[in-house]
Design a binder for these strands. Sequence first.
DNA 1: CAAATAGTGTCTCTAAGACAATATCAC
DNA 2: GTGATATTGTCTTAGAGACACTATTTG
Lengths: 279, 279
Amino acid sequence: MSLYNPEELLQEQEFLKNYDITKYDRPSVTTDIAAFTIRNEESENYRRDGKRKLSLMLIKRGEFPFKGHWALPGGFLKPTETVEQCAVRETVEETGISPSAIMPVGTFSEIERDPRGRIISNAYVSIITADSENIKGGDDADDAKWFDVEFDKNENGEYSLILKYSDIELKAVLKEVSNKFGVTKYRIIDSGTLAFDHASIIAAALTALRKCIGDFEVMFDFLPETFTLTELQCVQETILNVSMLPANFRRKAAEYVEETDEYVTGAGHRPAKLYRRKR
Amino acid sequence: MSLYNPEELLQEQEFLKNYDITKYDRPSVTTDIAAFTIRNEESENYRRDGKRKLSLMLIKRGEFPFKGHWALPGGFLKPTETVEQCAVRETVEETGISPSAIMPVGTFSEIERDPRGRIISNAYVSIITADSENIKGGDDADDAKWFDVEFDKNENGEYSLILKYSDIELKAVLKEVSNKFGVTKYRIIDSGTLAFDHASIIAAALTALRKCIGDFEVMFDFLPETFTLTELQCVQETILNVSMLPANFRRKAAEYVEETDEYVTGAGHRPAKLYRRKR
DNA sequence: CAAATAGTGTCTCTAAGACAATATCAC
DNA sequence: GTGATATTGTCTTAGAGACACTATTTG
């Protein structure tokens, strides 16, 4: 760019040479990752489909602070990467799976949110394609597990977040403190044993995900290349914790998908046609 | 919290005592503020209403880098404040006006975005109530001006951003690089003479604002306590750069506003009733 | 054939948009 | 009275939700 005349250019170079970036206080910067996927429970009845569950990956911390407690995967920003790149890298490093998409949730910068000092977190949702092989991968690691997620408003207007893995049940209580501009923030009433302010991050991440899951492009990120319309519908139903009439869902989906020639067979009922996202 | 047993508690205290937060690279962190307001142009015709314009505050940089160029107000995060508090403080310091609301836009962390070094910006929209006294305030300062904003897609699918103040016209060209999860990002094709990556931040801020201005609560932030329904409609029309039929807008607004006993008089036509937001 | 899911057709209701018509002020 | 905005009412249409019905598989 030729923004300056030659004299100014020299002045700017001089300024930058003498500029000491360390003269301002600098916080540490991290990303925290809420990696979500949809998992399929086995069914006892051969003709009934297994129940779908929304799952979130947590890791058991091996170091202080919060050693031995469950936390979101995440880590410090490197000088050579953007926060988005950091979010993708952390997802791959900690879950072993490459996300099909990442979505910003917000910046968490409360002064006391980390006992190690001033650490600002940029939170992201990572969407992991529902695919049994991939999901199993994370399950092998001793310290990274997929927890089933429940998040509902209870009687007194507060929200309870329940995360379950095998016989482990983590429970947090939160209160919605603002909901504007399409951004919802939560204050922690009771963190349970979740590390840091991660209950609040998980609540915000899930709310952000719910907000955009009506978009078919986002639903597709949860599924492999080809899928049945029922699977597509289950993505939305599972994340929003609602149920819809298939006829109406199919009518809306028609615009965004195209048929393939293949069918899913082997279930104890009429085989479903496989679809793919429309270009 | 009694997360630990006494032994672990001691271990964590020991860990934190020895923890050196400076062992990781730390970027500098700033906020940049896109402060928007709606301004009313004077009309030559006594009975025709003045045209409303969407305006953005820019400041003329007094220091390198980009000395003498126009930029978004903003500054470094202090150790004692959250990024949201920083955004409010910077808005007040640089425009002299307290925002009626702030809204997160996103994190900008490209490695080379600031020639001074690694500086990550958290961008916010500040909404400034349309109120002639307040707006004049900023206008007094020599280095802070309200620029009229135009932002449109042009023939070849790129976006042009035009900012005008008096005889100053800043023009930038951008390309949409992603639009998902309700978040749109732009890459700068031509920054014009705007400082840093601020063209890209302004485009993202305006897109974020347009996305949520259908929400009446957000429209209200642009207006004083009481207002006419036409003023309310103009907020939306001006920001979205569209025009709507009053009958339809009023039907939608009815749910969110309540009448007062007052009217606006003095215009060369039927007086309008003043409304306020419904509790 | 029984039980489950896959898939189609249609009715109703609501909300958004278009448009026509009336009301009221300052000059 | 004239020209502007303020305000009300109504017609049409698109889309969401409800529901009834048919199709196809496996044990």
